[in-house]
């Protein structure tokens, strides 16, 4: 599992909607599977309230959609609009990461 907080106490990218979209990009998941997956790849623990708050907003915006379910655990999948929104958000993050990496490189720190 990834560390909870990086050295120096800088905040990691832990926006619940973004994390949910990243998790669903791997395939449909229900609430508990989402929370576990996010914990594993991002080291972020999303409580039930935060998770379902984000699911509600994402569904309202048409970025995810529920799938039919036989039991109480309803799975969700990412929509085409959700994939597009995720691609744009990741491109923004990549630009920030690339800029930061290049600037650290000028200070003599190699992150590769």
């Amino acid at each position: 599992m990834a560390p909870k907080r990086p050295p120096g106490g800088l905040r990691r990218e832990n926006d619940p909607p973004l994390l949910i979209l990243v998790s669903l990009a791997d395939g449909p998941k229900h609430g508990h599977a989402l929370a576990k997956d996010i914990g594993e790849f991002a080291g972020v623990t999303l409580g039930p309230g935060a998770l379902y708050g984000a699911i509600t907003r994402l569904e309202e915006r048409g970025l995810i959609e529920p799938l039919a379910s036989e039991d109480r655990r309803r799975p969700y999948q990412i929509t085409t609009a959700g994939s597009a929104a995720l691609a744009v958000a990741l491109a923004d993050l990549r630009r920030i990461a690339n800029t930061g990496t290049a600037r650290l490189g000028r200070l003599g720190l190699d992150l590769a």
Binding site: H30, G31, H32, A35, Y52, T56, D71, R72, R73, R74
Partner: peptide
């Protein structure tokens, strides 16, 4: 309205957690 739409699946998540 939220309870009617998400209530059961939310409780399932809390139980799993």
């Amino acid at each position: 309205a939220w309870r009617e739409r998400y209530g059961e699946e939310f409780l399932a998540l809390v139980e799993d957690t």
